[in-house]
Write a protein that binds this DNA or RNA. Structure first.
Length: 885
RNA sequence: GGGCGAUUAGCUCAGUCGGUUAGAGCGCAUGCCUCACAUGCAUGAGGUCAGAGGUUCGAGUCCUCUAUCGCCCACCA
């Protein structure tokens, strides 16, 4: 038995255990029809990612579940992997290129992609290694990457299937365009930020009577160059006479019709709105409805085009100034007001996005959403906490088509080839599919015309188009693998609320459309990690706490414990680095408890002896252990991880260490039963703790070397209650604890020196019979500093004594001249008047109320009667004491 | 503008079916270096459960309103 140092150093323990677990193959799972599967797929972190607190929380929760289920005997598989993160990764590599003074265009597509792959080889596993350090018990042999061959095959397969089913189409649409990244962005990728802007009012002169005009307002003056109408509300009396007339667009000279549409809000601005169908989502709808011209006035990189000479080629913001100046000069700028509005920004580079007309690929979402809505409504898939159900359904029922093409290079290239000859013909006789070849492999010639001159679509797919297949593409789909058949559907998905729409909803849709089955049955949504002032952790705020630094300082167990106990189901997690001290201290406490036990009972085996050989304290702690097992298990089953961790903590620290170890300490050497029980209870409790604190629990458990157990706690069976009833032991030990606490309390209140012994008289109906009394009395003597103990009616003078009250009895602590009589009188009088008497009054009022005694459940009424009796007796005891003073 | 949620000790949060004296951790106060642990031990102070009304024998818990604070969604140019 190696000597354990008095202070626990997690760094000595954690890394070697990772190697042991790995070498023993404990992370790996294989299909096994004899056992029930339990599967989790990791939310794949970006390959550009480094571990932050959000990951730490997310993966701790998953690891708790997977370790718990593994110990329960499930064939537990946790599939890890990473996401290629199209835009983010491309940005990183472009930045490193920029340091060499190059742009990706200088390299060309092939060479650039090679660079990205190189980058991925070098840095792409960083986060995986960090997850390992956290203790995540993933099946690392099954680590997947969204750009792996198999997963890429799944992507093209789905694209083809959806295209053939008419669910993928190509179309013109107003999309969010990032002029810097030069790519389309999904709505979710262009978060709106409240921005102080200006609202400019322009006069557009009427064509027939140029001295009259209509005033429109805009926040983006440069778009006026692409205006093709002015819209007003059909019932607006100010404009009703103008509907159908035309205005002449300043600076351009185009004639624009004045149209009427309900979508115009007469209350806002001037009630007249300029319509730019190619550069605004609302205007786009108006344009389609009213058959307006669509004029695209901007290039990919945000410069003006298709506009009169002085503006052509100008950057959009330069052009804005120029347009304003020119309108001002022509006295057409009516006025300018301050305006607070929401402007979309690129989620990657924060550039102001430009709504822009563009030819993109889309997925028709309504048909996909139907089974996914149904599954949540009928409970096939449940959210924890349940309130996310509403959020999910609300979004799904209003779902919009999904723009899946991205104008970047890093990602799954769209499996579409174009035959230009056929495309040309399609223009003459409109056919949306002519000239378009969708295929999982590169076609050699056009199936329609036989031409060999085909070109592949330049764009790649949205990153989420591979992530939404993750629960089954990682298991081998579209091949019908053994893994897929056995481990799918997965069980629990653990993720953050931000990606319910991005990812969770889409996975559910993909599960149904590809396999006809849900991808998982439970979705656990945890909170966001914030600092103590409630702000999200972010680099720009400088409030990041680095999980790896916490691991270095306090250990992975402390990190995990503190994270998990800081979050109730569904609430955000507020963290400061001092909080991790709690986890560290707990680990140290355990370490020392184990150290003590190993040294006090070196030879004993870790197994509980038969009840009849156990002392009253042994039986008591075994009973408490049973309760702790039940509570912890129930909490884990309900995904109440904080409760599970706190319950194990409470048991180990405040029941096992504070009381049981103290009770048995003096007699360990001569009491074999206690030696066994000490080891047994610790061993069992370490199992309860293992999912939350895998390292220290494993390390200590191995030191205990339980008999008839596997070598590793990680695969040891989850504890089950013994189910013995030790009610008498529970009652007696509960009584001793109460009396000890009461005596200590009086000692502290009356400042009895720690070393001083006191005489105590106890008067109790609950006096245990003689055989049981001896060990209990010894504890009173030792743990409460009692010198002599008399049992029987209170004797001696009330002077010099302080009464204590406990369930089923009372006592007197004789302190002699050491106490201040007046103080004692005041304390006890206050207790009587402010606590006991009001409580008795309340109880008696309740019992005097017929409505209560008749309609409350009998056990509640009974409880009240018992309370009444206890209080009456306590009051009598105190009164007689005060009287005797 | 719509939807969701929160408000309990100085701080961060639990509180299951409405039922005993509303709990924990941290912090604070007091006393202890007691031979596992000072990253420890013991004891204690601290609460009108945001406010008002209602249902009930009984409300932190259920209902209504008010206040404050979050989050999500939305095309107000």
């Amino acid at each position: 038995m190696p000597e354990l140092p008095p202070r626990y150093n997690p760094l000595d323990v954690e890394e070697p255990l990772l190697a042991q677990w790995n070498d023993a193959g404990l992370f790996h799972a294989e299909p096994d029809p004899k056992r029930a599967p339990y599967t989790i797929v990791i939310p794949p972190p970006n390959i550009t990612g480094i571990l932050h607190m959000g990951h730490a929380l997310n993966n701790t929760i998953q690891d708790i579940l997977i370790r718990f289920k593994r110990m329960q005997g499930f064939n537990a598989l946790w599939v890890p992997g990473t996401d290629h993160a199209g835009i983010a990764t491309q940005n990183v590599v472009e930045k490193s290129l920029a340091k060499e003074g190059k742009r990706r265009q200088d390299l060309g597509r092939e060479a650039f992609l090679q660079r990205v792959w190189q980058w991925r080889e070098q840095y792409g596993s960083t986060i995986i290694n960090q997850l390992k350090r956290l203790g995540a018990s993933c099946d690392w042999q099954r680590t997947r990457f969204t750009m792996d061959d198999g997963l890429s095959q799944a992507v093209t397969e789905v694209f083809l299937r959806l295209y053939n089913a008419g669910l993928v189409y190509r179309g013109n649409y107003i999309i969010n365009w990032c002029p810097r990244c030069q790519t389309a962005l999904a709505d979710e990728e262009a978060p709106r930020k409240e921005t102080h802007g200006k609202l400019y009012h322009f006069r557009y002169p009427l064509s027939d009577t140029p001295d009259r005009s209509i005033v429109v307002a805009t926040t983006r003056p440069e778009t006026m160059l692409g205006d093709t109408a002015v819209a007003v509300h059909p019932k607006d009396p100010r404009y009703i006479s103008l509907i159908g007339k035309t205005v002449r667009l300043p600076l351009v000279g185009r004639e624009l019709p004045i149209i009427a549409d309900e979508a115009v809000d007469p209350e806002f601005g001037t009630g007249a709105v300029k319509v730019t169908p190619a550069h605004d989502p609302v205007d786009f709808q108006l344009g389609k409805k009213h058959g307006l011209e669509f004029i695209n006035v901007m290039t990919d990189d945000g410069r003006m085009t298709n506009v009169p000479q002085p503006y052509a080629g100008l950057d959009r913001f330069v052009c804005r100034k120029r347009v304003l100046e020119d309108l001002e000069r022509q006295e057409l700028l009516e006025n300018t007001t301050e305006h607070l509005h929401n402007v979309g920004h690129c989620y990657r580079c924060d550039t102001v996005v430009e709504p822009r007309l563009s030819l993109q690929w889309f997925v028709r979402m309504k048909p996909l959403a139907e089974p996914a809505i149904q599954a949540v409504k009928d409970g096939t898939i449940t959210f924890i906490p349940p309130r996310w159900t509403k959020v999910y359904l609300n979004w799904m029922e209003n779902i919009q088509d999904w723009c899946i093409s991205r104008q970047i290079w890093w990602g799954h290239r769209i499996p579409v080839w174009y035959c230009d000859a056929c495309l040309k013909e399609a223009e003459a006789a409109p056919d949306p599919r002519r000239g378009i070849i969708v295929s999982t492999t590169a076609p050699e010639r056009c199936p329609a015309c036989g031409a060999a001159a085909l070109r592949q679509d330049e764009d790649v797919l949205d990153t989420w188009f591979s992530s939404w297949l993750w629960p089954f593409s990682t298991l081998g789909w579209p091949n019908n693998t053994e893994e897929l058949r056995y481990f799918y559907p997965t069980t629990t998905l653990v993720t953050a609320p931000e990606i319910i729409f991005f990812w969770v909803a889409r996975m559910i849709m993909a599960g149904y459309v590809c396999l006809g089955k849900p991808p998982f049955t439970t979705v656990y949504i945890h909170g966001t990690v914030r600092d103590l002032t409630g702000r999200k952790m972010s680099k720009s705020l400088g409030n990041i706490i680095d999980p790896l630094e916490i691991i270095r300082q306090f250990g992975a167990d402390a990190l995990r414990y503190t994270l998990v106990t800081s979050t109730a189901v569904g609430t955000d997690v507020f963290i400061s680095d001092e909080k991790f001290v709690v986890g560290r201290n707990f680990a140290n406490k355990l370490w020392n408890a184990a150290r003590f036990i190993l040294q006090a009972a070196p030879e004993a085996a870790a197994g509980a002896p038969p009840a009849e050989q156990c002392s009253v304290f042994d039986r008591w702690i075994l009973q408490e252990l049973d309760t702790a097992i039940r509570d912890t298990t129930a909490a884990l089953e309900r995904c109440h991880f904080d409760e599970a961790a706190s319950r194990a903590y409470e048991f180990l620290w405040h029941q096992f260490c504070d009381w049981y170890i103290e009770f048995v300490k003096p007699s360990i050497a001569s009491t074999p039963s206690s030696q066994h029980v000490l080891k047994h209870v610790l061993e069992q409790a370490l199992r309860l703790l293992h999912p939350v604190m895998p390292f220290i629990s494993e390390a200590l458990w191995q030191q205990l070397q339980p008999i008839n157990s596997p070598r590793f706690l990680m695969v040891a069976p989850w504890p089950v209650p013994r189910g013995e009833r030790h009610e008498e032991a529970s009652r007696q030990v509960g009584w001793v604890i109460q009396v000890i606490t009461a005596i200590r309390s009086v000692r502290a209140e009356f400042r009895v020196p720690a070393a001083a012994r006191v005489d105590v008289t106890l008067s109790t109906q609950a006096t245990p019979h003689a055989a049981a009394w001896q060990p209990l009395a010894e504890q009173l003597t030792r743990l409460a500093g009692v010198k002599t103990l008399h049992v029987g009616p209170a004797t001696g003078s009330a002077r010099g004594s302080v009464p204590i009250l406990f369930d089923g009895g009372s006592g007197l602590i004789h302190l002699g001249d050491a106490i201040d009589i007046e103080q004692a009188r005041q304390v006890k009088q206050r207790e009587l008047a402010e606590e006991l008497q009001p409580r008795l009054a309340a109880v008696e009022a309740r019992l005097g109320n017929e409505a209560f005694t008749k309609s409350a459940p009998p056990e509640i009424v009974q409880q009240e009667r018992e309370k009444q009796a206890t209080l009456t007796q306590r009051i009598a005891t105190l009164e007689s004491y005060l009287h005797a003073l």
